[in-house]
Amino acid sequence: MTLLVVQALNGVQLGLLLFLIAAGLTLVFGVMDFINLAHGVQYMLGAYLGVAFAGLTGSFWLGLLLASVVAGVTGIALERLVFRHLYGRSHLDQVLATFGVILTLNEAVRVLWGTAPLQMPMPDALSGSFQLMEGLRYPVYRVALIVAGLLVAVGLAWAVNCTRAGMLIRAGASNAAMVSALGVDIGRLFTLVFGIGAMLAGFAGVMAAPLVSVEPSMGDNLLILAFVVIVIGGVGAIRGAFVAALMVGLVDTLGRTMVTDAFKAALGASAAARVGPAVASMLIYLVMAAVLAIRPAGLFPAARDA
């Protein structure tokens, strides 16, 4: 039971990190029909910027703030300099161009910070652990990460559903051509969406930095999971991204813990050690296939007008 509770909390934590990455990605895809493979680089860039700014200022919190803002500005710059020229092009062109951005930024990070993994110090106020239940202590920072992810999710839901900018974003996800025809500066809307998405990904990178090694290409695997989240939740849907992110985080974390143990009862320890991890790594894709078989547009797809 203790292991189950710990892994469930870890799964929620992973799910909220995925939500922070997938939320911006699903808005970009839903509003602009633009496939941005370079979104995972914003997560990596946020982590590196967090390490750099925390080292310069001596404060984790200032590093978090500055890194998130600079990540957002970087996203806006990429949109204006590169991505804007790809609107209306085929998805293949977008994939190839954004893959080139991935290679460029990964090499830039290697030049600036080297290839050795970096570590961001954990803030003193959030270090240590507390007793969650008898026989179980859980790190304070991981709980803080969960709380921060939930607060960002609530704030983003309010912004998308209760503000004029959010109304325009939702309208753009439904029918971008009509929004433009009504006199809305669609280019400025696209820039806003890119900036929000990049800032969220950068924020996720900084928050994850004390728990993982900060290294080049660290966002690649999470980008794949983020696309799985978008497919399951529905393109352009913030609520879908939130539900799907938690689902993917829990299935991936609990699956890697429990599947091998389940196979031990039937196959023995040695066979289970070979088969279990392979099956566990496929679970989220099996979930995705099951969801698509029932709801091809995802769980909560954004409404689209003809």
Rank of each mutant, 00 (worst) to 15 (best):
V5S: 09
N10S: 12
Q13G: 12
L18E: 00
F19D: 01
L27F: 03
F34R: 00
I35T: 09
V41E: 14
M44D: 06
M44T: 15
A47T: 08
A47I: 11
A47L: 00
Y48Q: 04
G50S: 10
G50A: 08
V51W: 10
T57E: 04
G63T: 03
G63W: 05
L65Y: 07
L66T: 08
L66E: 02
G75K: 01
A77S: 11
L78S: 01
V82K: 02
F83P: 02
S90A: 12
H91I: 14
V95R: 03
V95G: 00
A97S: 14
G100T: 09
V111Y: 12
G114E: 09
M120L: 15
P121D: 03
P121K: 07
A125T: 15
L126M: 12
S127T: 11
G128P: 10
G128D: 06
F130E: 05
R137T: 15
Y141R: 05
G149I: 02
V152N: 07
L156D: 06
V160K: 04
R164D: 10
A165F: 15
M167F: 01
M167V: 14
R170Y: 01
M178F: 13
V179K: 00
S180L: 10
G183H: 10
V184Q: 02
R188S: 14
R188H: 09
T191Y: 10
T191H: 03
T191I: 06
A198Y: 07
F203T: 04
G205V: 06
P210I: 03
L211N: 09
S213G: 14
D220P: 08
L222Q: 09
I224W: 07
L225D: 12
A226E: 04
V229K: 04
I232G: 01
G233I: 12
I238Y: 02
R239E: 14
A241C: 11
A244F: 08
G249P: 09
L250C: 03
F263W: 12
A265S: 13
A266E: 09
A266Q: 14
L267I: 06
A271N: 14
A272C: 04
P277M: 11
A280V: 13
A280Y: 06
M282K: 10
L286V: 15
M288S: 05
M288F: 12
A290L: 15
P296Y: 09
P301N: 13
A302L: 04
A302Y: 00
